[in-house]
């Protein structure tokens, strides 16, 4: 095949409540489309291999990794980043809880942590089980459950203890 030809595809995706249309190469990840093409820099590029969770966004309301999602697959879908969780500067309860509990130090992983926590709490509220509990019973809101459900988000500053407290506070808010 001709490796110099263009493989650009137009996608139309709703990003933080605004419909955006952009031409992307088929190889472009959602993360790169957001950051490099649409100027939405809230999701971060940590490992770019699905291991750190810094790029976590909500896709049609569910937490996913933007670095392993090809942008061409997101046409017609709804993307919410941590930025979009605070329209007009009004913080989401999870974001407020992160501030209240010093659940960050450098802050690089925080937008991913916040989106992951929002998704995780939604899953918990819907009765989704986790490895921390018994699959035959309804899950309970415990620190062990929160730690397990947030294990896909690394924090190199090591603020895990406060992150768990923040997520716990947001869940009870």
């Amino acid at each position: 095949m001709d490796h110099h030809r263009r493989v650009d595809t137009e996608i139309t995706t709703r990003v933080d409540g605004v419909t955006r249309t952009v031409l992307v190469d088929t190889r472009t990840t959602l993360l790169d489309a957001l950051r490099e093409r649409l100027g939405t820099t809230s999701p971060k590029k940590g490992c770019d291999h699905g291991q750190c969770g810094a790029c976590t966004v909500l896709l049609d309301g569910r937490r996913v990794l933007a670095c392993l999602t090809l942008a061409v697959t997101t046409t017609g879908k709804d993307v919410t980043t941590a930025d979009g969780l605070a329209p007009d500067g009004h913080l989401h309860p999870v974001q407020q809880a992160f501030l209240d509990n010093d659940a960050l130090q450098c802050g690089y992983c925080t937008p991913g942590q916040v989106c992951s926590a929002v998704g995780a709490l939604d899953e918990l509220a819907n009765g989704h089980p986790s490895h921390a509990g018994d699959v035959t019973t309804d899950p309970q809101l415990t620190r062990a459950e929160i730690a397990e459900r947030m294990s896909g988000n690394l924090c190199r500053c090591g603020t895990y203890t406060n992150i768990i407290t923040a997520v716990e506070q947001a869940a009870r808010a």
Binding site: L65, H131, G152
Partner: peptide, 12 residues
Amino acid sequence: LLSGASGQLRNM
């Protein structure tokens, strides 16, 4: 299933 990957990956 719950022992594998992360919440984000299991959603994908």
